[in-house]
C-alpha cells in the first residue's frame, strides 16, 4: 500500500516536472553557452562585466553638476534603493509621455536632477551606471509594470519584432522564434531574452547595452539601425522584457 502510494507520488511529481517544462521552454542565452564562457559569468572575480559595475559603483557616489550632488545624495545605498528596479524597466515617464529604458532614466536624472547634462548613449559612464543599477536586481524575476500607458508601445515593439527588415529581409522572429536553437554559421541562435544587460560581450571586448546588441542584429540583416535611444529600441525592449517576464536578471551577463 505504502509502495503504491509512493509510486503514485513519484508519478505525480514526474507529471508536474513535465508540465513545468512544457509550460516554460524559455532558455537564457547562458544555458546555451560553452562551459568556458559560463564559468566567466558564474564567478564575479572572473566576470569582466564586473569591471563596469565597479566603475558604476564609484560613479554612484561621485558628485556632479552645480549643486555637486551624486546619485547617492538622493537614492542612498543602491543595494537598498535600486533592488528590483532594473526588473521593472522600461517604465512610463509621465513628463515626456513616453516609455524610458533604465539607461534613459539614469541619463534623465543626471540631466534634470543633477543638472550635469545627459550622459551620451553607450558612453562608458552610462553603461557603467546602468550595469551597477542592474546588478542590484540580479537574481530577481523580470517584472514588467502593469501600466496601461505602456500597452501601445509594447504592441508596437511586438509588431517590430515580426517585421522583416534589411537587405536580407529578416525579422527578429524568424531567427529567434522560428530558428532558435539552430545555428548561424557555427553560432547557436539564442531565444533572445534580454536577461543580462548591460552585458560583457566577448565580441565587443567590453560591456554594452541591449541597444548595442540590437544594432548588431540589424547590421547583420543589412538593415539601417535605429538611432541610439530611439523609441523603436525602447518599444522592442518593452516587448522583449514582457516575453522574458519571470526569468531571472543576470546583469552583468557574459555572452560570446
Amino acid at each position: 500500500m505504502w509502495n503504491e502510494l509512493r509510486s503514485a507520488g513519484v508519478i505525480a511529481a514526474l507529471a508536474l516536472c513535465a508540465g513545468a517544462r512544457a509550460e516554460d521552454a524559455r532558455r537564457s542565452g547562458f544555458d546555451d553557452m560553452g562551459p568556458g564562457t559560463q564559468a566567466m559569468q558564474r564567478e564575479d572575480s572572473s566576470n569582466p562585466g564586473m569591471l563596469s559595475a565597479l566603475e558604476g559603483e564609484s560613479l554612484w557616489s561621485a558628485p556632479a553638476g552645480p549643486a555637486q550632488t551624486s546619485c547617492a545624495s538622493c537614492h542612498g545605498e543602491a543595494s537598498a534603493s535600486m533592488k528590483g528596479v532594473a526588473a521593472r524597466y522600461p517604465a512610463f515617464d509621465t513628463a515626456s509621455q513616453r516609455p524610458l529604458d533604465l539607461a534613459g532614466r539614469i541619463s534623465q536624472c543626471r540631466d534634470q536632477r543633477q543638472q550635469a547634462g545627459p550622459l551620451p548613449r553607450e558612453s562608458r559612464e552610462l553603461v557603467a551606471l546602468t550595469t551597477y543599477v542592474g546588478l542590484q536586481s540580479r537574481g530577481q524575476p523580470i517584472a514588467p509594470p502593469e501600466d496601461a500607458r505602456l500597452t501601445p508601445f509594447r504592441d508596437a515593439g511586438k509588431a517590430l519584432y515580426s517585421q522583416r527588415m534589411g537587405q536580407l529581409n529578416f525579422s527578429c522572429a524568424q531567427c529567434h522564434d522560428e530558428n532558435a536553437g539552430g545555428h548561424l554559421g557555427a553560432a547557436l541562435i539564442p531565444q533572445a531574452h534580454p536577461t543580462g544587460y548591460p552585458l560583457y560581450r566577448l565580441e565587443w571586448q567590453a560591456t554594452g547595452s541591449l541597444q548595442r546588441r540590437l544594432r548588431n542584429c540589424m547590421i547583420g540583416t543589412r538593415a539601417e539601425p535605429f538611432t541610439y535611444g530611439g523609441l523603436e529600441y525602447i518599444e522592442l525592449e518593452l516587448f522583449l522584457m514582457q516575453r522574458a517576464a519571470g526569468m531571472a536578471i543576470e546583469t552583468p551577463a557574459v555572452r560570446p
Binding site: L184, G185, A186, E203, N216, I219
Partner: peptide, 9 residues
Amino acid sequence: VTLPACVED
C-alpha cells in the same frame, strides 16, 4: 576558433 553571429560593424 568559430565566428560569432552578428559581429560589430
